[in-house]
Design a protein around this nucleic acid. Structure first.
Lengths: 223, 223
DNA sequence: CGAGCTATTGAAGCAGATCAACGGGGGTGG
DNA sequence: CCACCCCCGTTGATCTGCTTCAATAGCTCG
């Protein structure tokens, strides 16, 4: 399968792939298999033998775990440019979560064994892996802390701030996925997300479909 | 400061240090500074420039974050043999959490810059770092999932199962720290931990001080 | 234009946090 | 060694926030 130029440029910007020298990047590019998956397709399941590292090129993928009674909890939502399963390169030999495409997705898939071989030849790749893992770890720790410290409304406000341009006191953004996905990402039931949005209305947040208008970042930061 | 033989043997068993060849291990041993800290001492604070990687030799260290209103949430409890701050080797240049000694602690401290230099010379150390980070990441993701899926009682039962010998249907164990620390580790208020223990009584869990008697693992696993 | 899914809103239930009071155990000082 | 005291842990009561269930409204896509 052939990659579009957009997809190639995403890959080149992924830290893991574009960070090393040209030969390392080339080795990555020749090792990948492009796959497309329909909405709700399961990529792999918790407990299966781990075979692949993935990079999302298009669409979104949910990484989630199941409780004994069948409830689901997302541990991460991956979008274009995100890689996942770096923790399996020199870690456990089985997946530690389920992965499901949220919508139509295209992904780059790499065999873990080839990545391992590549690392042995290119020490810089190991550094890039360390960087990826460090970022993932920090973000996941943030997630634990936020879950334990913040209310639903605060989590949503936080999300809007992080997505914002950083400058500008007001802006609008379009959610890249359904609200139910955002709810899962924030560890909320969809209803709780909806209520959080409506309680943010009095802080100048206007929601219409996937479009969210933020009128006053300062107000959000104070919540 | 001089290390006891117990402390040396802990260090040798730490994956990061003992995994590589002998020269790498020796480099670690000569790079370390041993420090002892009194209870409640802060090792570093969130946002400060990151300087050190740590390995706990004795006692326990809390890694935690603060909310804007001053509440604390633990992201990890580190005991003898645990290392922390690997995520700063090739990651951010500032700490992402506070670290506080829970009791009298002895720690091995390494300058991050020396670890970086060591990695450049010994590629195997990079692999060990990847392994450490992978384990941390998986455990932290477990934490997110458990926080979102499990009740207080389930989390405590889970902890007792993980600490158990794995074999034997009944056993007793001694908590290595105060109950309030365990509560924080599990993301609970101390009162909630207490209530969880008393609701586990009917599943054959008997608590007397720090000693916990588990009569029926099977019953715990079903909760 | 209609069918089915997504999102919102209301009402009820529950889990855990918080506040307050009490009991007990361990450590310290006498 | 004993006694005291402080702090940890427990228990009860209340409160808040989120989930769950249910019904309705709005989108989107055939």
């Amino acid at each position: 399968m052939k990659l579009s130029s957009r997809e190639k440029s995403i890959l080149m910007r992924v830290p893991l792939i574009g960070a090393g020298d040209e030969t390392a990047t080339a080795r990555f590019m020749e090792a990948l298999t492009a796959v497309t998956v329909p909405p709700r397709q399961i990529l792999f399941r918790d407990g299966e033998i781990a075979e692949h590292l993935f990079c999302v090129l298009n669409g979104y993928v949910r990484l989630y775990r199941l409780s004994k009674d069948g409830r689901e909890a997302d541990v991460r939502i991956c979008g274009p440019g995100d890689t996942f399963n770096e923790c399996l390169i020199f870690g456990a030999d089985r997946y530690h979560y389920n992965a499901q495409a949220v919508e139509n997705c295209t992904l780059a898939r790499f065999e873990l064994s080839r990545i391992r071989a590549l690392i042995d030849e290119e020490p810089n790749v190991a550094k890039a892996v360390v960087q990826c893992l460090s970022n993932s770890l920090v973000r996941t720790m943030d997630c634990v802390a936020n879950d334990r410290l913040q209310t639903a409304t605060q989590r949503v406000a936080n999300y809007l701030i992080k997505q914002g341009p950083g400058s500008a006191t007001s802006y609008s953004l379009r959610l890249p996925f359904q609200k139910s996905v955002l709810a899962g990402k924030l560890g909320l039931a969809p209803e709780a997300l909806s209520r959080a949005f409506s309680s943010l209305r009095e802080s100048g947040v206007i929601v219409r479909g996937r479009i969210i208008q933020v009128n006053d970042i300062g107000a959000l930061k104070q919540i």
